[in-house]
Amino acid sequence: MTGLELFWTWVAAFLTLSIYSFLYKDNVFYKIAEHLVVGVSVGYIFTINWFQGLHPYLFHPLAKSGQEPINLLRLIPFFLGLLFLLRISRKYNWLSRFTIALVMGISCGVSIPYTIEARLIEQTKASMIDFTQQPSIWAGICSAIILVGTIATLVFFFFSKEHKGVLGGTARVGIVFIMVGFGASFGYTVMARVSLLIGRLNFLINDWAKGTYHFIFG
């Protein structure tokens, strides 16, 4: 480990401990780390945005380069983008509606066929399989449970009719599946957070404490 690497390790360790100090209470170290990372991350996003967004999609097509002709059409989104910036103006913020409308139209139009394909058709197809053609009886039973669970979950979210009788019973089955699904998601999330915690403790013990010891004592 070089001196510069050790310096950056100490910076990272200081910030890690500053964030953990919030577990005791809000304090000056936590606020320093919090405000520092806000500035750093926005600055980083700006830079990435500039070089991976504006540069290849706007500046490059507008500049003469090699055999490629200049694409003046790219001035239109640039102009629309400038209109979008008027959102911060009290007098002219209505002009930003044109840009928002275009982006919303593009997003909605592109999302409809993909949503129908990926979320509706593919999910339905995956649920409606031939149970008798499964590799084992148990696999067939599990496939049937998935189909029943999917239908019951959908019924639970159907609020156009009061959940009574058959509809109420099916919705009740849906709750069972939803609760098991939420429990599984919760367990997964907890374990993901704990593994992040282990990663930070690993950094503090191995990279920071042991690294510093080895740097000083060899």
Partner: peptide
């Protein structure tokens, strides 16, 4: 749990989200 009831619940929720997204996109 992850492969069967969890998949069923997530699939139901995903189909519901898909229906919601499509109808909202059309409304917009």
């Amino acid at each position: 749990i992850l492969d069967v009831p969890n998949t069923a619940a997530k699939r139901g929720i995903m189909i519901g989200i898909g229906l919601g997204m499509t109808s909202t996109a059309l409304k917009i």
